[in-house]
């Protein structure tokens, strides 16, 4: 499998009153044209890992790595100006809450058109046509109406699909999706997932799918990194997640209520201090 992205020894650090807090502690992994899941509890460093790839960690946070290579080119060596191009054209990110990512005072159509014209030299009419296409691509049934609407007029599911449409305009090679379906009903979740799935299969896109939902990741992804306290504790094929070995992963799985297998009590995760200290597992294929 051709490697799109290769990350070596990534750290994300925050200076705090009590010293430096290491949110991500030396993770290494690669991404091909695949659906790579990152799971773990809240605070384990999933979002910071995703944001660090795009160098979107806010001040005073610091990103360090031996390299973050996109097609062999180190993103850490790029100027901020060049990074903006990478963000606009090669790697897109969908954040958890679309309400914070869309401009509330601009119609959805205008935002999509602007996104397209930033990326390609196109007339307004061409950009409009492209915007409509993108809305159709994310299964929005009434794209003409949606073009004229404002973000607050959209339901959660619509908002999330619009965000994905926006991210698709530059035809990115890599999409980083941070909990893209967590706020959605199961029925709508399926639609958003199938859109992303199509992009991986049809356009050969690489997808980093960040989620706290183990069952979802095991059903949807190809490969999974399991994060704990800023490190990768285990890597496995998604369809074998339920055979995972690490006691942390096993503990998370055991704590889930199972519809098909009732039991009187749920397992409670017993944390072992050694999990935090064990070196990060390498997530390369």
């Amino acid at each position: 499998m051709s490697t799109l992205l290769d990350i070596e020894n990534l750290w994300v650090r925050f200076p705090t009153r009590n010293g430096i807090f290491d949110a991500v502690r030396g993770v290494s992994f690669s991404l091909g044209r695949e659906r790579l899941g990152i799971v773990g509890e809240s605070g384990s460093g999933k979002s910071m890992t995703g944001r660090a790839i795009l160098r979107l960690i806010r001040h005073p946070g610091i990103v360090e790595a031996d390299h973050i290579n996109l097609h062999g080119e180190n993103l850490l060596a790029k100027s901020e100006r060049d990074m903006r191009k990478v963000r606009g054209e090669q790697i897109s990110m969908v954040m958890q809450d679309p309400k914070f990512s869309l401009n509330p005072v601009m119609t959805i159509g205008d935002q999509l058109i602007e996104a397209h014209r930033l990326h390609a030299k196109a007339t307004k009419a061409e950009a409009r046509k492209k915007a409509l296409e993108m809305l159709e691509a994310v299964s929005i049934r009434d794209p003409e109406r949606v073009m004229g609407a404002y973000p607050h007029e959209m339901s959660g599911g619509m908002g999330q699909r619009i965000m994905i449409a926006m991210m698709l305009i530059p035809n990115p090679e890599i999409l980083i999706a941070d909990e893209p379906t967590s706020a959605l009903d199961v029925s709508v979740q399926g639609q958003v997932l199938s859109i992303m799935d199509r992009l991986v299969k049809e356009r050969g896109m690489g997808l980093i799918f960040i989620s706290h939902d183990l069952n979802l990741v095991s059903q949807f992804c190809d490969r999974v990194l399991i994060m704990y306290a800023g490190r990768i504790v285990e890597v496995c094929d998604a369809n074998r997640l339920h055979e995972a070995q690490h006691p942390y992963t096993r503990g998370l799985l055991g704590s889930l209520p199972r519809f098909d297998a009732p039991r009187p009590r749920l397992e409670v995760l017993q944390r072992d201090p050694s999990w935090r200290d064990a070196p990060s597992v390498e997530g390369r294929t």
Binding site: L252, P257, R265, L269
Partner: peptide, 14 residues
């Protein structure tokens, strides 16, 4: 809540 914390709260409620 995280699933691990959910398990603790659901056990508590039971």
């Amino acid at each position: 809540l995280d699933v691990s914390v959910q398990a603790e709260i659901l056990n508590l409620l039971s």
